[in-house]
Design a protein around this nucleic acid. Structure first.
Lengths: 343, 343
DNA sequence: TGTTAGCACTCAATGTAACCGAGTGCTAAT
DNA sequence: ATTAGCACTCGGTTACATTGAGTGCTAACA
């Protein structure tokens, strides 16, 4: 374990580097933070820290830069508390109370706020619709051979999908089907709609001669609702970070972010209860190994609903991002509770 | 008017510059395009073209670059036809025929295809929902004091919005209202729902004591449907263009593109029937004055529905982008016709 | 008279050398 | 154990010469 002074030096180095994005040297360090020792001593300490793997050296005679291990130690223990400021809280709260919104706006704006305040990319994974309670399914005629299926849930999600009517089917049939479906599924969580529920529907519908297509229709409507939605924010902001002054890097990162499934996988890797920080190489995905991700999962009644995350260069303001995520987390949980989300 | 040879030289210069992004000189020009004259002659012609304002010179002794006027002349007359290749057509057609989709997916994918094939940013402005025919409005209870309003149109658009119930209102009241509304508005274009229609509804509802909130509720549901939707594609692609190797430029452009209203205004400036090309300084908006926009409007029964556009550096492949837009335009018109869009 | 070869000239880009300065590592003094 | 001092490193900057693609002009040419 590092002694007190080493820890202070390490913290000073990292704080400095996060603020300046430049390798930090002993003299500058002694000047800014008063550690009560001379640059020479700091040099010795830094050499030790490098031996131990917490700092890195590009070459002799350029300042030190934190290593992944250094950031890890920093995040796990040294990190200075940097609570969300009151003005920021006001800003956020005002927004959340502003007015009743469609639930997807809530997620979109949450992403926007997070990225605006951390100046990094933010990611918000919204709960699967399938975790909400089924409210009703309606069919509406679109034209002679197509119907619109509208699925509604407690949380205010409305999912719609165009279905082709099987040959010979009449819209009347769909309406009858809707009545059956709604009766059987009323109040159920979408996810919990199991084989047995579908079986019941099947049984009821069978006499009407619609059996063949009925299950498929429901299945497709439900499938559409299983998709988790991903909201991105601040892809522009990241251009302000010095590490993204290189267009190649920007392009790589943007390409990753465009792959929705890939991003979801990355987020799904973090399902722990509290905040999780993944630093540089710790990331599975090699194209973001010079980035860090902070994730926060939100829950209701102990059930995992979704994830908030900040993605930035390893040199990111961990403290700020972490406290902000924590704060937004409580906010979004609150909103979801208000919307009567059922699990 | 330029004589034949000048036109050929101008075209060669622009073609070359579009392909290479480098100022083009007389020697190289003579080598690649065989114009049948020596570099010296080409130099003379280029000097003339510069006099006339079609070409520009950063300084003595670097090749020529087309001026806005040069591009304009090129676009208006010289442009080599570069039809969409058969493979590309196959690719596009296959996609369009793939399966029945939600209409918003059609627009989103159209944007993606355009940007993918032009390697530039694409913009797709979808028709206002209000240009579609009203199909039905439904209220669904969300909780004690809120209802979900679902508005459906012929074209398969489903718009939903959460409304707060006025104090003392019962969900029953909303259902009665819905019946009235649906009867009165059936078959009307949403845009054409005028004061008189609303008046009729008002009259019918009045006795029920709901008058005060009824109009407002409908109005808000309709308002939500007035919004045109904008779909963007290929913001990543543009990073491949050499003019965007500078992060500052990228940032500026991305900032503009983030301002949805601004972008819509830019597109609204072009309502002409065919393709319109706006080159560099011709753009009103100063932050895109080193870009060109090509717009194509699509129509149904003579009525303007929406816009497809490509946004790229002034040095863009006009010919390709133009023919592609034209092709996509017929495609999307076709799709819309199939979807029974009513104006 | 229009075209072309030749040539002097220009200027961005590239390469090279010198220098500066922030920073280190080591040693010796405190 | 700490620190002052000093030699050394190396990226970054500046200055300067070189290169090469390109022009403009003039004179020769068809």
């Amino acid at each position: 374990m590092l002694d007190e002074r080493k820890r202070r030096v390490l913290q000073a180095v990292i704080d400095d580097y996060i603020a300046s994005a430049e390798p930090v040297g002993s003299r500058a360090l002694a000047r800014k933070h008063d550690l009560g020792v001379s640059p020479a001593t700091i040099r010795n300490e830094m050499a030790d820290l490098e031996m131990l793997g917490y700092l890195e050296h590009i070459h002799t005679s350029s300042g030190r830069v934190p290593s992944a291990k250094g950031y890890r130690f920093y995040v796990d223990g040294l990190i200075p508390p940097k609570p969300v400021s009151d003005e920021e809280k006001v800003l956020i709260d005002r927004w959340y109370q502003a007015r009743v919104k469609r639930i997807d706006e809530v997620f979109q704006e949450t992403a926007r706020l997070i990225s605006k305040m951390t100046r990094n990319v933010s990611l918000v994974l919204a709960p699967q619709v399938s975790q909400a309670a089924f409210r009703c399914l309606q069919f509406l005629p679109l034209d002679d051979h197509r119907v619109i299926t509208v699925l509604m849930t407690d949380a205010g999600f409305v999912e719609n999908k165009i279905l082709e009517m099987p040959d010979g089917a009449e819209f009347e049939d769909f309406q009858r089907m809707a009545r059956v479906i709604n009766r059987v599924l009323a109040g159920k969580t979408i996810r919990s709609i199991s084989e047995s529920s579908l079986q019941m529907i099947e049984d009821e519908i069978q006499d009407s001669g619609l059996y063949a297509s009925a299950l498929e229709v429901i299945q497709r409507a439900l499938d559409a609702s299983k998709k988790e939605r991903l909201y991105l924010g601040g892809t522009t902001m990241m251009l302000e970070q010095p590490e993204f002054h290189d267009v190649e890097k920007v392009k790589n990162l943007l390409l990753v972010l465009e792959e929705e499934e890939l991003v979801k996988d990355i987020l799904h890797a973090h399902t722990g209860r509290g905040l999780e920080v993944t630093i540089g190489r710790e990331n599975e995905n090699s194209s973001i190994q010079d980035c860090s991700i902070i994730t926060a999962t939100y829950h209701l009644d102990g059930e995992l609903l979704g994830t908030l995350a900040v993605l930035g260069p390893t040199r990111m303001e961990y403290s700020k991002a972490m406290s902000l995520l924590e704060y937004m987390n409580t906010n979004i949980s609150e909103v979801i509770r208000k919307y009567h989300w059922k699990v």
